[in-house]
Deep mutational scan, measured.
Amino acid sequence: MEQGTVKWFNAEKGSGFIERENGDDVFVHFSAIQGDGFKSLDEGQAVTFDVEEGQRGPQAANVQKA
């Protein structure tokens, strides 16, 4: 798993970007967020995640709040 920080997340659209510790920013969709309840992330929040190849390039998967 990688570690990173939420660069921004739009709760209305359900997507945003995570700033990786090593590498380019990666797209995140709300469906990749693990946990119960409303799936959203806050700017500056620390997260851990896997990276998968999506239709438009790398994207975060199995996102967990650190």
Rank of each mutant, 00 (worst) to 15 (best):
A61C: 11
P58N: 06
F30G: 03
F49L: 04
A66N: 12
D24E: 12
F17I: 09
I18T: 01
K65C: 10
F49P: 01
K7F: 02
E43H: 13
A46N: 10
Q3W: 15
Q34I: 14
G16Y: 02
A60H: 00
M1F: 11
Q34T: 11
E19L: 13
T48V: 10
V6I: 09
K13L: 11
Q34M: 13
G14R: 00
L41H: 01
G35Q: 10
Q34N: 11
N10A: 06
Q59V: 11
R56L: 10
Q59G: 03
N62A: 02
H29I: 05
A11N: 11
V26C: 06
F49T: 02
S31F: 03
G44D: 04
M1T: 13
A32Q: 08
V26M: 05
D42Q: 15
R20W: 08
D25V: 12
N10I: 05
V51P: 00
A66S: 12
V51W: 09
E43T: 14
S31N: 06
Q3C: 15
T5W: 15
G37Q: 05
W8F: 09
D36C: 14
D36G: 12
V26W: 01
E2V: 11
F49C: 05
G4F: 00
F38V: 08
A60D: 04
R20S: 06
H29Q: 02
G14Y: 00
D24W: 09
Q55K: 14
G35P: 01
H29P: 03
S15H: 15
K39V: 08
N22G: 11
S40M: 09
D42S: 15
A60L: 01
F30A: 07
Q45N: 07
W8M: 05
A66T: 13
V6N: 04
V63T: 04
K65G: 10
G14E: 04
E43P: 15
K39G: 05
F27A: 05
S31A: 06
V6G: 03
I18A: 01
V6L: 04
R56I: 07
Q3P: 06
V47H: 00
K65S: 11
G54T: 13
G44A: 04
V26D: 02
V51R: 03
V47C: 05
G35T: 10
Q34A: 11
G44W: 04
W8Q: 06
G14N: 02
Q45S: 08
T48G: 04
T48I: 12
N62E: 03
P58M: 09
K39W: 06
Q64V: 12
E43W: 14
K65E: 08
L41E: 02
F49M: 03
N10S: 10
A32Y: 03
N22L: 08
A66E: 11
V63E: 02
G14T: 03
K7I: 07
S40V: 09
V6A: 02
W8H: 06
D50S: 13
A32W: 02
E53T: 11
F9Q: 05
Q64S: 10
A46M: 13
I18D: 01
L41T: 03
R56C: 15
A60Q: 01
E43F: 12
T48M: 11
G23F: 06
V47L: 02
G35F: 08
G57D: 03
V28C: 07
L41Y: 01
I33P: 01
H29M: 04
A11H: 13
D42T: 15
F9A: 03
G16H: 01
N10K: 04
Q34E: 10
P58S: 07
W8D: 04
A46D: 08
S31L: 07
G57W: 08
Q59W: 11
G37E: 06
S40E: 06
Q55D: 12
G44P: 03
D25T: 11
D50N: 14
V63K: 00
D24T: 14
Q59D: 02
A11T: 11
H29G: 04
K7R: 08
A60M: 00
T5N: 08
T48S: 09
V28Q: 00
F17V: 10
G37V: 05
F17P: 01
D50M: 14
Q64F: 10
V47S: 01
Q45I: 08
V63I: 06
E12C: 15
V6C: 07
G37C: 09
D42H: 15
P58A: 08
Q3L: 12
G35I: 09
E52M: 14
E53G: 07
S15A: 11
G35H: 08
N62W: 05
R20C: 08
F49D: 02
H29L: 06
E43V: 15
V51Y: 05
V6Q: 01
A60V: 02
H29N: 03
M1Q: 14
I18C: 07
H29C: 10
E19T: 15
A61W: 03
P58V: 09
P58K: 09
E2R: 07
I18Q: 04
D25K: 09
Q3H: 14
T48F: 13
V63P: 03
E21N: 10
K65M: 11
G4E: 02
V26L: 12
G44M: 03
P58Q: 09
N10Y: 03
N62I: 02
F27T: 03
Q64D: 08
F30K: 05
Q64I: 12
Q64H: 13
D25F: 13
S15M: 15
D25E: 09
Q55N: 12
P58C: 09
F27K: 01
E2A: 09
I33H: 01
A32K: 06
P58R: 07
L41R: 00
V63D: 04
G4V: 01
S40D: 05
E53H: 12
G57P: 07
E52L: 13
K13I: 12
V28L: 07
G14D: 01
K65I: 14
E12D: 11
G54F: 05
R56T: 08
A66W: 11
F9R: 00
I18P: 02
D25R: 09
L41S: 02
D50A: 10
V63Y: 00
I33R: 00
K65L: 14
Q45R: 02
G4I: 03
E43I: 15
G23K: 09
R20Y: 07
T5Y: 14
V51T: 07
Q34G: 08
D24R: 14
V47I: 05
T5S: 08
A61V: 14
F49A: 02
Q64T: 11
A61L: 10
G37S: 07
A61D: 04
E21W: 11
N10R: 00
G14S: 02
G54Q: 06
A32R: 00
N10W: 08
K7A: 04
Q64C: 11
Q59M: 09
G54S: 10
K65A: 12
G54M: 06
N22R: 10
Q34R: 10
G14V: 01
G35N: 07
V51K: 03
E2S: 11
A11I: 11
R56A: 09
R20A: 05
D50V: 14
P58E: 05
Q64A: 09
F9N: 02
E52N: 08
D36E: 12
K13F: 09
I33L: 07
A60C: 03
G14F: 01
F17G: 01
Q59I: 11
V6M: 01
V63C: 04
A11R: 14
Q59A: 07
T48Y: 12
K13Q: 10
S40F: 13
G16P: 00
K13N: 09
S31V: 04
F17H: 02
R20G: 04
D24C: 14
Q3A: 12
Q59N: 05
N10Q: 05
S15N: 11
K39E: 06
F9T: 03
S40L: 07
G57A: 05
G23W: 04
K13C: 14
G57R: 04
R56K: 11
K39Y: 05
A32E: 05
V51E: 04
D50C: 13
D36F: 11
R20D: 05
Q34V: 14
F17W: 10
E12L: 14
W8G: 04
A11G: 08
D25I: 12
S15Q: 15
G23A: 09
F17C: 11
V47E: 03
F17S: 03
G57I: 05
N10F: 03
K13E: 08
A60P: 00
V6D: 05
V28Y: 04
V28T: 04
F27P: 04
R56N: 12
G44Y: 05
A32G: 08
G54W: 05
K7L: 06
H29W: 03
M1K: 15
E43C: 15
R20V: 08
N10T: 05
Q55F: 13
S40A: 08
F27Y: 10
A46W: 14
E52W: 11
Q3T: 13
A11K: 15
H29D: 05
K39D: 05
F49V: 00
M1H: 13
Q3V: 14
E21I: 11
E21R: 09
E2D: 08
F30W: 15
F38T: 07
V26P: 01
G16F: 02
D24N: 12
D50T: 15
D24A: 13
G44R: 05
N22Y: 11
H29E: 04
E2N: 12
S40Y: 13
S31M: 05
D50Y: 15
G44T: 04
K65W: 09
Q55T: 14
D36M: 10
V28D: 04
E12I: 12
G54E: 04
R20N: 05
W8S: 07
S15D: 05
R56S: 10
I33C: 06
K13D: 07
A11D: 07
E52I: 15
E53S: 10
K13M: 10
F27R: 02
